[in-house]
Design a protein around this nucleic acid. Structure first.
Lengths: 209, 209, 209, 209
DNA sequence: GATGAATGAGGGTTCATTCAT
DNA sequence: AATGAATGAACCCTCATTCAT
């Protein structure tokens, strides 16, 4: 069942979406102004509410749209990476980088929506986050092969160490891409090598045996 | 040179500060209302502006105050921890936990100020963050003893791996403290042991030799 | 000459009418929303205006429809009640009760239209009220037989005393029916007896001779 | 404890009150516009809310003010009318007429507030109505002397007959005063005589013995 | 120093109505 | 006949800030 908005010509939809996402990313949910949105999109105040009903529903629509956008492009393929946890995480980390590089605006919007959740929409967003997580990150830890792990360490903590390091790396690359976005995916191979060095450090340890 | 505000009786200063910090923490910078602050502090609207000039200046004053508060209590002492990088980081991580446990409201306020920087105050806050960082975290990596590190790994990356893991751990504990604040520092010893297990994993590595 | 609306299939007409009347009764004329009406009736916004031209015209159409509805069922038969003024008024009062019980929604709508007249429609409604009154209530006082009245009292005032008492009673019963609508007409005989007691009091007077 | 508004110069208070009451009487609670009020009172939009907080609170303030106005002038004196129920009711009925004649605008405002209670304020208004009623009308039926009543009629119904007739009369006079307000209290004596004729009719009855 | 009355732009949202399709 | 996108004024209310007292 198409919503009112989705029945619009594609280019108009796109223009309105970009304007609204930009406004949300620039000012945050509460501080974003529907007035500015309509001005910049060149439509009347009333029309935005004709389409979406309320600021909150507009936000949720955009979350769904952007989630779908990334899902189709990056997440739809099942996570069938062979190999151990390091391989899987590399695969997943690079996917996130690709998503960011592909559309930094959209990616920032999702981060805003999922990490700085506006209070009013907490419930609705938590649910969406859950769903999207399960389709991606969540599968990472299923059926994990830890046969090569040392036996004298806490295995759960070992896994968490890997995850924390990779989270930190992800944040670092994201920051870098945000500040020098034009280099985009061109560094991808370079980054992959860097990740591998970090993984090797985790594998063999830092101290001499 | 004392500001107008600092010439007030200490208890009145304190009351006003607590009310304002609470309001900022509860609503964020933009959503915080100076009207509510004056109402709750029991002073007139005009007076707040008489003291601080503007909402932004009030915020910066509070950032400086809270920074000073923590600096005096936790950061002033030089970082003379003996031992290698792991020891230093443990020392630093526990300090952050202590700061949170000592005054969760102030800690949250600083996190708000430094991590979700309000656009208008971006510059002023970045500068303050820089200064505070250098006095604490920054010293961590000075004159680092890496003599026990393996030679076949990238040393800078090894250090960063440690830092990233410890950042992740810090976030985890902070979350825990926020949700179960009454346990407070009582778990400190427990946490120290947990940190050491993580460090051991980093030291010896995850895979069997 | 059939209006556009009246050329519609009967069931569609009915659905639209019920929805609109309900909306007017629930919210009053000004607060009633044509948007909600079209949503609930399952027709487009434009169509309502295609049929009725404006909110005001829609309201007047409904007034006419409901007036006609009651007129056909309850008022068309000439008021040929034999007997004196008391008999006639009893007859008329019971009619009003029947009208309410027959269709409380319609009855409330007419009360809204005629007693809380929306400012914009004041003139048009006053005229309609006049017409409907004359066909019902108005006939009540034509060719009145007052031969049994005392001679030492003002006859016009005596008649008005009866009318005012009966109006008061009517309001009381209406309130009762609204609050306990399911009992509906079942109390009709009981009410008739009550009315007769009031009339007897008026006939013989309150004080001892 | 004076409210913000009550600390204003008396003439400014009066101007604002009259403007707001007029607006409420002209358009009803929901349809009344705070924008129009501030325009006509010559104050800024924000100021009205600075004084009263919300449209609803403004309305309740006005209800209290007008209630107090009438209470001081007409209701404060205890209802010590000697004589029977007819005397009491005459006394009370004339009071209401005086109240209307004294300030028709205020009187209409109270009728609006108490009889067409805005839904949002239902509770607060019901409570105020209760209190005002008890101080006036409510006392009417206390310690009633019905010793001169006939014994063959239902006494409760007899009392109610009187009340209903007088209500009807009250409404009639009110209507008349509204349409010819300039005559005001000048007809008071005339009206008193008319009331007495109605009461005599009720006392002796309409039919010949 | 201290007050709080005063401002007016801007917030999200609803509304009856129009008109190209 | 029927649609629903489109309008823009108006709604109540909040805001940080100013300034005469």
């Amino acid at each position: 069942m198409r919503t009112r908005f989705e029945s619009l010509p594609e280019d108009k939809q796109t223009r309105i979406r970009e304007v609204c996402i930009q406004e949300f990313v620039n000012h945050g949910y509460e501080q974003a102004s529907t007035n500015r949105m309509t001005e910049r999109a060149g439509i009347s105040k009333g029309l935005l509410f004709h389409y979406f009903g309320s600021k909150g529903d507009l936000f949720l629509y955009l979350v769904d749209y952007v989630s779908g956008y990334f899902y189709d492009r990056f997440l739809a393929a099942p996570l069938e990476t062979p190999g151990d946890i390091f391989d899987r995480i590399t695969f997943w980390g690079l996917k996130k980088l690709q998503m960011f590089a592909d559309n930094p605006l959209y990616y920032q919007f999702l981060m805003l929506a999922f990490l700085d959740r506006p209070k009013d929409l907490e419930g609705a967003l938590a649910q969406r986050y859950q769903m999207l997580s399960e389709r991606g990150y969540g599968l990472l830890l299923k059926d994990l092969d830890t046969s090569r792990f040392r036996e004298d360490i806490d295995q759960a903590k070992a896994v968490e160490t890997i995850l924390m390091t990779m989270d930190g790396l992800g944040k670092k690359y994201m920051e870098l891409l945000r500040n020098v976005p034009d280099r985009g995916l061109s560094r991808m191979e370079e980054i992959r090598q860097e990740i591998e060095e970090y993984q090797r450090i985790l594998q063999v340890g830092i101290y001499r045996p």
